[in-house]
């Protein structure tokens, strides 16, 4: 939220800035400056670590915290059991990591920390980040698929019941839809997070500008925008959870393809 010249730039919140004077860090010729994005990934990892660590008391009768952590792992476990079956157990660490990283990053990016002068950043609103996660999931699907079924994995592109006279078309469509998966995974998350943040920022600029131009416009435009913002904040919390769930769910469905073919 850069209020330069009395204007709010809704895109400024996504800009990446190197921090702590690390802009010259290099690795094999690539710039690896520790940016605000990296900082929020670190915060996400730290918060997640503390959350799970707090649930590791391993008590027979769990406390509230342990119950919360156990319900999160149980949720992932059920998701995989429902979509893949007993073979899904071994993917729990990966799906858990994907789901909780996205969920925590989304939620932390929504925190109203501007009130205390901290600029929250949502790593999942960058397709460089979501793209890496999507490529990871896709690569795991490919590796598992070829490791378990070898070249037979290509039968994924010929669904059961395909009429013989469509055999020249269906595999092409299936192949395209298969190859689109990492892009759809990455773009869905990135677009959903960015759109929500832009919307909130635009509405907040309405509130600020209309309030600055007097009571009349503040009442007509500012107040409804503010009420809408409150509602959209609640919606964004929902979206944060849903997008994390969708990413984890689709990854597990793709893993099911790799694990069980059709």
């Amino acid at each position: 939220m850069a209020a330069e010249g009395g204007k709010v730039d809704p895109m400024h919140q996504f800009s990446i800035e190197p921090m702590f004077g690390t802009d010259h860090w290099q690795l094999a010729g690539y710039n690896i400056a520790f940016t605000n994005s990296a900082l929020w990934m670190a915060i996400t990892a730290a918060v997640l670590f503390v959350f799970v660590w707090g649930g590791m008391k391993r008590q027979l009768v769990p406390g509230r915290w342990q119950m919360a952590v156990e319900s999160l792992t149980g949720f992932i476990d059920n998701l995989l059991a429902a979509n893949i079956g007993p073979a899904g157990k071994k993917y729990v660490p990966y799906i858990f990591s994907i789901f909780s990283f996205i969920l925590f990053a989304n939620l932390l990016g929504l925190l109203p920390l501007m009130l205390v002068g901290v600029h929250p950043f949502t790593p999942t609103s960058h397709f460089t980040v979501t793209g890496v996660l999507a490529v990871l999931s896709f690569a795991i699907v490919l590796i598992v698929g070829f490791a378990r079924h070898g070249l037979h994995f290509f039968s994924l592109f010929v669904p059961h019941g395909t009429p013989w006279w469509l055999l020249w078309l269906i595999p092409i469509i299936e192949l395209i839809s298969f190859l689109v998966r990492p892009f759809s995974l990455a773009l869905r998350l990135f677009v959903a997070m960015m759109a929500g943040h832009v919307l909130l920022e635009v509405l907040s600029s309405f509130v600020i500008d209309s309030a600055n131009s007097g009571l009349l416009w503040g009442g007509i435009v500012g107040l409804p925008s503010f009420l809408l913002m409150v509602a959209i904040c609640a919606l964004e919390l929902l979206v944060a959870g849903i997008q994390a769930y969708v990413f984890a769910l689709l990854t597990s469905l793709y893993l099911n393809d790799a694990e069980n073919l059709h």
Binding site: I16, P18, I32, S37, M41, Y94, S97, F101, T128
Partner: peptide, 23 residues
Amino acid sequence: ETYASQVFWLLIFFGFIFFVIGR
């Protein structure tokens, strides 16, 4: 300018989450 840093730090922190927390 930023993709290398984004990918690098994501792999670091997601790797931490996967290996330390997830596994």
